[in-house]
Design a protein around this nucleic acid. Structure first.
Lengths: 239, 239
DNA sequence: TGTACATCAGTGAACGCGCGTTCACTGATGTAC
DNA sequence: TGTACATCAGTGAACGCGCGTTCACTGATGTAC
């Protein structure tokens, strides 16, 4: 019917690109990152393998797209989590975000492994993925920077920062927590590490047999690290 | 010359088994866990692939052996680390152990990924590996249980434990930190998670561009979590 | 000490499989006059 | 509106590769009498 010319082709093309990505995503869920093959994706779409090369330059390009997509999804999950806790105390916002991230991980184990697990052999991450990786981190740091004033004194539970700590954390501190004391930036890194580390260890089976109620243990751990960042107390100290 | 009969054969057999494992280990370092193939291992040894089946029942059996070996190696590294800090304050012992574990990880990235990274697709971990996985954990918990008396009050930085926390952590608490309060057990889990999580994230490239001095940031993080467990203060409180 | 026999290590060929990527091609879709 | 042409999506066959595992086999090593 309608013939908008090149736009038609572009639309169809965009749509098929999405379909390929979706199929690749399904394949990822079944076979895992290392086993993800172009041919298997093509099979799902009833296409011939070579046809995919019209849409993705190589298997690596497809992987990259999946990685970016996964990072965006965790970021979105975190964001939704925080929004659900809007207006509540910072600790609760942090808990909500962390739980949302964990839930996403439990629901998408292969996607999680793709971005936070061992690097896919032979795959070299292009800059796009590095940028995308920041999505979650941004959400988490926003909670912190909303709750902790630049001049706030770091929680007493934190050790005295050694000389050079500020410098060591300069890039992340400057970009995501400008003006906050180095101990707080370090604590934020610790909290983030705890979150990602926990979900990875849980997914990869390292708590099996040791912890019976993972939900409870997780949220206690998240509360603990929230305290390190200074989210537990009233915050907003002015000097 | 000597012919001790069946013992000779057994000795040769044991030796070749070790050589195969060593070759598999080299192959792992080059190709990564997912890419580890029996044929490649055989090539390294100038053997024919089928010959390996006299020594390992399958590729999975070989993987299992490598995994057990890796766990033992991290455990040994941790042990050596603690020993080097014998007699010094608990925090220093913890730092020594943690640094040793991290160093081992940085030196053996593929072994690390094998045990703490994404599970190898299609591989099902047998019980042997689960037992072996406890080696590091034991070393770390020994530091804690030596330093923190059963009746010690948990550090004030820890949140009030919710009802059920003790139950959630019952298995690990009973086996590795008997009698310690649930908050302390939880903090130990957090410390362990921080250690393994940190090294994984560092190895997998997640701190790249954000932290410039990883040694410094790592040891500050480890000091921080040591404080949560109660290693920082004088410890040994009696009730 | 010597010989017949059993055990076992290692060989070589083969099975059936899957992979990423290339290339020349057919037809359909869109464009320009 | 109609036709000649260019673009582009998708096909099908092929390339060269690697994989885990099996099987019947040859010879050497050890054992029992």
């Amino acid at each position: 019917l309608s013939s908008t010319g090149v736009l038609d082709r572009a639309r169809v093309r965009a749509e098929l690109t999405r379909e390929i990505l979706a199929a690749a995503h399904d394949e990822l869920s079944d076979a895992g990152a290392a086993g993800l093959s172009l041919r298997a994706v093509a099979r799902r779409l009833d296409m011939v393998p070579s046809a995919l090369y019209r849409y993705f330059a190589s298997r690596d390009a497809l992987l990259t797209a999946l990685i970016v997509e996964a990072y965006q999804a965790v970021g979105a999950a975190a964001e939704t989590g925080v929004e659900a806790a809007a207006g509540r105390p910072p600790v609760e916002q942090w808990l909500a975000a962390a739980s949302a991230v964990r839930r996403w991980g439990l629901e998408h184990p292969h996607d999680w492994a793709l971005v936070y697990g061992s690097p896919v052999p032979g795959y070299q991450a292009p800059p796009d993925t590095i940028e995308a990786a920041l999505a979650v981190t941004r959400v988490l740091c926003r909670i912190v920077s909303d709750a902790v004033a630049p001049a706030a004194r770091p929680p007493t539970a934190l050790p005295d920062p050694p000389a050079g700590l500020a410098g060591a954390l300069q890039p992340i501190g400057a970009e995501l927590l400008p003006g906050r004391p180095p101990a707080v930036v370090a604590a934020a890194v610790t909290a983030w590490t705890q979150l990602i580390g926990w979900v990875s260890l849980e997914l990869f089976g390292h708590y099996v047999g040791g912890i019976t109620d993972l939900d409870l243990a997780f949220s206690y751990a998240m509360r603990t690290v929230a305290g390190l960042v200074g989210l537990a107390d009233s915050g907003r100290g002015e000097g």
